[in-house]
């Protein structure tokens, strides 16, 4: 079992808080259901603590690629009207969104 401080106490996920971080409005029902399901999943995932990884390097990517560079050359890109074609709301050549600053 995994917890924040790596003891045997199971960590309870605070779904409401995480949903705020994830920009996701959840209902009270969803928070309750997800909390139970995610705690089950995290309980299962906790078995990773049985693997000794003290001297192991993390693999974030399988390929031995480092910086992939290309020539700094101007190539054609999408036209403004193509870029805006799918926007739910637009004005002139801009995406339109609700007010950001109060």
């Amino acid at each position: 079992m995994v917890s924040k401080d790596n003891n045997n106490k199971k960590s309870e996920i605070d779904v409401g808080y995480v949903a705020k971080l994830a920009r996701l409005a959840l209902t009270a029902d969803e928070i309750k259901r997800l909390g139970k399901q995610l705690n089950d999943i995290l309980g299962y995932i906790g078995k990773l603590n049985n693997v000794d990884t003290a001297k192991v390097q993390p693999t974030s990517h399988v390929l031995p690629l480092k910086n992939v560079e290309r020539t700094d050359k101007v190539v054609p890109s999408l036209r403004i009207e193509e870029t805006l074609k799918n926007a739910p709301l637009k004005e002139n050549s801009f995406f339109k969104v609700p007010k950001v600053i109060e």
Binding site: T53, V56, Q57, S60
Partner: peptide, 29 residues
């Protein structure tokens, strides 16, 4: 929604090392 919450959680401050980094090391194994 489930995966967005789970993913956000394992990357969030305080849990990153215990979950995400640990998983990347097990990936190496």
């Amino acid at each position: 929604k489930r995966r967005v919450i789970l993913g956000t959680y394992v990357l969030s401050s305080g849990y990153y090392d215990a979950y995400y980094l640990k998983a990347l090391k097990v990936r190496t194994k």
